Computed example of a mutant assay.
Amino acid sequence: MNSNVVVFFKKLIKRYTAHNIAATSAQIAYYWIMAFFPFLIFIISLLTYTKIPAGILLEYIAKIVPASSVPFIQNTINQFIINRSTTLLSVGMLFTLWSGGTAVNALAGGIHLAYNSKPVKPFWLSRLTAVLYTILLAVLIIVLMVGLVFGNRLGDYIMESLHMNKGIFMPIWQLGRLIMPFLALIAILYIIYRIIPRKHLKCKNVWPGTVVVSLGWYFFSLIFSIYVDNYSKYNQLYGSIGGVFVLLIWLYSSCMLLLVGAEINSLYQELKTNHVIRKIERIRTT
């Protein structure tokens, strides 16, 4: 293995321990799980006032979260639908913003630590910034869902308006819809790693962590889902709440990947800067 790669991984492992990523990931996951179900309340409350069936929401959630958590989420969704009210809509939105904002604050703290940058101050400004990031994330998720749900109709409308051949362009459009969640993930991660550190970062120094985390999250979710569905005994150990533990572990691991991505970007930039400095010093001494 290339010596530079070995050095990079050794430094990354030291950063993982020194920056206490495991504990920070647990903190972020705790607040995300608190925001997850209120966010579902908010989305489902909106859907029940439209002609879009709530089953579509579950269909796309099932593609993201581990399969063992889907029955628990489905039961929760059914209860929300039965007890639909405007109060749930308001409370769900407010609680999502508060819990999500707290999770974003914890995530931002981990990213600032990775870059050794200063967080937003004072407290009210950092809270407001975190809420704005949460709203941005929620909007991106809603836009993604709308794109997935109405993708066929949108494609038909565009092709009819532009007089395009559906036989040629519709398969391409369908392929685009399949990779849309992955592209959305890359876009969200890029925004997080580009904006939160509050430092001047070159675009090329943001991509390594973005790509690694995107691919890592995809393959981790796939492998973890296979493991839970075939080898895990969570449901036997914990009964009906086994799905909650699976969801917590998945969220915890996902948060850990997010922080590791920030460490990768920061370390990559640091090593490149050190290389440039050494090169300049060699030129001066010659």
Results as ranks from 00 to 15, higher is better:
I195N: 09
T129E: 13
T76Q: 07
A138I: 06
N274G: 13
V5T: 14
Y16I: 04
E59R: 13
G242W: 06
S232H: 02
A35D: 08
Q27K: 11
P53H: 05
A22P: 11
L189C: 02
L57Q: 01
I43V: 15
I192S: 11
P53M: 00
V212L: 13
A23L: 12
F95E: 10
Q74W: 08
E270I: 03
Y268A: 01
V70C: 02
I195W: 15
G216L: 08
Y268I: 00
I81W: 00
W124S: 06
L215C: 14
I223C: 08
N116H: 13
L257G: 15
K121L: 07
F123I: 13
G167M: 02
I264P: 12
T50V: 03
G242P: 00
N205Q: 12
I172T: 06
F123V: 12
S253N: 11
G92Q: 07
Y238Q: 09
G101K: 07
R15F: 06
A26D: 13
S254Y: 06
V244L: 15
D229R: 14
V6P: 03
N205G: 08
S25K: 12
V70H: 00
Y16W: 05
A23P: 08
R284Y: 07
G239S: 10
M180Q: 02
L162Y: 13
Y238N: 11
N205R: 07
I61G: 08
L94T: 10
A26N: 14
Y60I: 01
T102N: 01
N274R: 15
A23Y: 14
K204P: 01
T273I: 13
V211C: 10
L132S: 05
S214A: 15
N83Y: 09
L140W: 07
F150K: 13
L58P: 02
P122R: 04
F182Q: 06
R127V: 11
V131A: 05
N230H: 14
V246Y: 05
I141W: 10
L132F: 01
V91P: 12
L267Y: 00
N235R: 12
L94K: 07
K233A: 15
Y60V: 03
T210P: 05
A22E: 10
A262M: 02
I64H: 03
L88D: 14
Y234H: 02
S117T: 11
A262G: 03
Y227P: 07
V131N: 04
L258K: 07
M159D: 04
H275W: 09
V246N: 03
Y49N: 02
G100E: 03
S117G: 05
I249T: 13
V260C: 11
V212P: 12
V131Y: 06
S69K: 03
S85I: 05
H163S: 14
I142L: 09
N274E: 15
Q174K: 15
P197N: 02
Y49R: 01
G100D: 02
V213C: 07
P119N: 04
T87P: 01
Y115E: 06
F150I: 09
K51C: 01
K121I: 06
R15L: 07
Y30L: 03
K279L: 01
A108G: 04
V212Y: 10
Q74V: 06
L154I: 12
V139K: 05
V70K: 00
T76R: 05
G239H: 04
A108I: 04
S68D: 10
I81H: 01
A130S: 15
Y234E: 04
G167H: 04
